[in-house]
Design a binder for these strands. Structure first.
Lengths: 345, 345
DNA sequence: CTGTTAGCGCATTCAG
DNA sequence: CTGAATGCGCTAACAG
């Protein structure tokens, strides 16, 4: 049987309360006494039973998640994962509230952060927009002792505690490498379809993509970026125009959402098979297009992992505990039709 | 505050003990009483606090992991993950023993399973070899009420409760698709380096690979499989001979271990840059070769995920609880140099 | 500064 | 068949 607080109390010749005080680094213990207890902890090899501690504390963590509204499938999937986390609230001692905000609207996001602030939660997770008013709102939260984690899209240079998302520069590089190699010696330019340069993740992906294309596939022409606002209808219109204007288009990197529109345009133009397409995020639509062959590769971030990581980090920060960075790293998944998971999405 | 056993006892007008009896489906409760309690549970929306239950029970799960010995980096990484799980034993209420056995030796493995049996654990996780004596030993464990999970390599047709590993046919297909597309119109045959056809995972990968090459890249010549016994020295010798015999070799699919030997042979022959190589398992060696460009793609299974999944399943089976299959699915990771995680491995 | 005591939510004797 | 009482390992008033 592993040692308990009783054992260390006996070993040190003190009471339970004193042991608890040094265990939780609370004041009101003489240095000598503290030493005795710490020695006992050491010699007995005591490790605290966290679940028992939580049971006794009865502590819960009120958290707020701020997620963009709209019909972006990835964001809807993200919200599903947050709701799944809500379903686990009891076991995880969390109380999660979801705040929905219009997409690509810095003003609205800043207001949502204020709303979150008013609720005085232990932490806030937010899909960020890279804008000064957002950075300012995050700072106010932090100044008030509320932990902040950016989710999916980061806010570098802000006071946020942590970013729960993928390395988007690496994602862009991966896309470039795959498109470059898949096209091989085949002729024709490559286009990029983005959502908006207002969000950091899209900017980073573009940067990584351009870097690889420049360094390793310099002969390949790159067309100017198209911004589809992550909107399926707009994306379809823009891509249709692109296909008409560039009959010899060889590849498309779709680094944002709106893949439904992209796929529709490709299929309408009868180009589904011939153009090499690398897209982001595994959703029911993109999945179908991968299986049918319209999309060749999907780069994905696991929204479930991101949400669970954000919660772990938020709880740790709220308790002033350190975070094991390596454990919280979100991986860039690569899916071909052959390694598609059978499950959800 | 969420309802507790006390609340439901009060609501149903019975004692705690009775509530506990129906909660844990123990006998000795009249149907009427049981109904009353179940109704109370329903109306109050009670959900049991598992951590408190575990605390009260003080139950632990003795588990045995059987892992092949030798200098196979992947297996050593797997063992590291099992040791990490041992470090978490306190929190997870497990007591894990590791048994080491010579690789590719069905006889030795069957004996290790007997040794595990003697310890009377709640469950056994085993990297299987597809052989009758192993299947028989697994059956004896199961007949004795001990849960069995195969790890990494499965034992289809046996009595094992679950397989914690990837879909190796899909992995082989993925490898075929990537090699086929990367080579494009380039001429030259493709070779396959395996460990041993004695283990199911290698056989499955080969099957998937052949299927895709046949169906989608029919023009590409496939050389007979080379078996390197997952041994670096042997693999190096065999690959060196292959390179000498096939000067126009275009690609290699390394579906087992022994990548150190493969890489050494390629670099010695000065073919590191020119031949397209797809290999399995991210280890320090394969990682370095991916970064240097000798290996083009690494397919990986996350040993940490596999170990954690095996433990979850073993505990659930030991308690007679169902397993959520989708949640325990192990994904096939694809790594290019661009999306390599910075962490371990 | 230190000790006593009473729970947290649940499981389990042991009586009745 | 059912209930009262006790304890799991830890925390938190409240006394001293």
């Amino acid at each position: 049987m592993r040692p308990t607080v009783h054992d260390i109390a006996a070993e040190a010749g003190v009471s339970l309360a004193t042991v608890d005080r040094v265990l939780n680094k609370r004041p009101g213990v003489r240095a000598v006494t503290r030493d005795k207890v710490e020695r006992a902890i050491e010699t007995l090899g005591y490790v605290r039973d966290v679940t028992a501690a939580n049971l006794a504390k009865g502590r819960t963590y009120p958290l707020v998640f701020i997620v963009p509204a709209g019909d972006n499938s990835f964001m809807r999937g993200l919200e599903v994962e947050v709701r799944a986390a809500i379903a686990r609230s009891a076991a995880e001692r969390t109380e999660i509230t979801i705040l929905s905000v219009p997409a690509f609207n810095p003003q609205a996001l800043a207001e949502a952060l204020e709303e979150a602030h008013r609720r005085q939660p232990a932490g806030v997770a937010v899909v960020a927009i890279d804008a000064p008013e957002v950075t300012a709102a995050v700072k106010r939260l932090r100044d008030d002792g509320i932990a902040v984690v950016t989710l999916v899209s980061d806010l570098p240079g802000s006071a946020r505690d942590h970013f729960a998302g993928i390395d988007n520069i690496a994602a862009g590089r991966t896309a470039g490498n795959l498109i470059g190699r898949f096209l091989g010696s085949r002729e024709g330019p490559v286009a990029v379809l983005a959502g908006s340069m207002l969000v950091r993740d899209h900017r980073d992906r573009l940067e990584g993509f351009h870097a690889v294309m420049r360094d390793h596939f310099g002969a390949r022409a790159l067309l100017p970026v198209i911004e589809g606002q992550d909107d399926a209808v707009l994306a379809q219109k823009l891509v249709a125009a692109l296909l008409a204007a560039q009959p010899d288009l060889a590849g498309i990197y779709s680094l944002g959402a709106g893949n439904r529109g992209l796929v529709a345009a490709l299929e309408t133009a009868g180009k589904a098979e011939t153009i090499c397409v690398v897209a982001h995020e595994l959703t029911p639509y993109s999945r179908a297009a991968l299986v049918s062959g319209t999309i060749d590769v999907i780069l994905n971030q696991d929204a479930g992992h991101e949400v669970r990581s954000a919660i772990r980090v938020l709880k740790a920060k709220a308790d002033g505990l350190p975070v094991i960075a390596a454990q919280e790293r979100i991986r860039i998944d690569i899916f071909l039709k052959d390694n598609l998971p059978n499950g959800q999405a």
